[in-house]
């Protein structure tokens, strides 16, 4: 007699394998979403840092984004921001220009990223190669849908065409459009100089003497000032804020320097690692009211 089989719900062959595969797939999706989420977070941080003017840190954050697994859009934005950060470094050179050019000429990228890169590249390259810069700015001006980029491109293109008559003749449509709509552009940081660099006759002697010392004498004798900011920087700042009275502030500073340096009440570590005693202008003109 054959043994009776107990009826059981037999699993279909391959059921466990499919379950495992589904689980694996879900894990991978979650993992990749986590990775792109992290990249997006890092990019948000980089953009916030750039908005705060901390370009060096913003550039580092962009590198972090690009080292991760960003999606195409995130990677494009990160590359753009990294190139912009690189362009703002004091030693920005060919690498920054090349990175921006690569971005704006890359037809596979999002148009807005290309336009923003084109504006940045056009502004950097306007003096060296006005024709190419004009092409880039034209592209950004006519292609962008972003208001800020449109204004920036318009301003940069207007400045370029105003200086260059030959280019103006070649691009009559752009010139005409720019002239008719420039009245609507908002005043922004590209057009208005910050107050600290505004020129007045009262600041001229301080600029001349301070600038001469910084360019001709300072490099020869090295940085000797024990205070931060250095006396030449203090003179420039004081003349900028108070005109010719800046010289009196400098004389007072020179008289006080040995005792302030000896007291070392508040020290500052400079980027090169040297330590100086802090003696800012605001500690000596706060009683004059708000610094202009």
């Amino acid at each position: 007699m054959e043994p009776t089989r107990t009826p059981t719900t037999r699993r279909r062959p391959g059921h466990a394998g499919r379950g495992a595969a589904t689980l694996l797939l879900a894990t991978l999706v979650a993992w990749s979403a986590q990775g792109s989420g992290k990249a997006a977070d890092a990019l948000s941080l980089a953009e916030a840092l750039a908005a705060e003017g901390q370009w060096s840190l913003a550039g580092a954050e962009c590198r972090r984004v690009l080292l991760g697994v960003p999606d195409t859009a995130t990677a494009g934005r990160a590359r753009l921001l990294a190139a912009r950060a690189q362009a703002r470094r004091p030693d920005a050179g060919a690498a920054a220009v090349a990175a921006l050019e690569e971005l704006w000429r890359n037809a596979d990228l999002d148009t807005e990223i290309r336009c923003a890169a084109a504006v940045e590249w056009g502004r950097l390259w306007a003096a060296e190669a006005p024709r190419e810069a004009g092409d880039a700015l034209n592209f950004a001006y006519f292609q962008t849908r972003d208001t800020a980029t449109f204004h920036q491109a318009g301003r940069a293109l207007f400045a370029l065409l105003r200086k260059n008559r030959a280019l103006r003749r070649e691009q009559p449509l752009a010139w005409q459009t720019l002239q008719s709509c420039r009245g609507t552009w908002p005043a922004d940081s590209m057009a208005v100089r910050p107050p600290s660099t505004r020129f007045t006759w009262q600041t001229l002697p301080g600029r001349l003497i301070g600038g001469f010392y910084r360019r001709q004498i300072g490099p020869a004798i090295g940085m000797r000032c024990e205070l931060h900011p250095s006396c030449s920087a203090y003179l420039l700042e004081a003349c900028q804020a108070h005109g010719l009275l800046g010289f009196s502030l400098l004389a007072d500073r020179l008289v006080r320097e040995p005792s302030v340096a000896a007291a070392r009440e508040q020290t500052v570590t400079l980027p090169d690692g040297r330590t100086r005693t802090a003696d800012p202008l605001r500690a000596h003109d706060f009683w004059m009211g708000a610094t202009p």
Binding site: F247, S248, A251, D252, L254, H284, W287
Partner: peptide, 17 residues
Amino acid sequence: FTWYSGSIYGGIDAAHR
């Protein structure tokens, strides 16, 4: 002139300090 005006300014600033 710079030293002298600095002396006057310094007198005022020293009192504030």
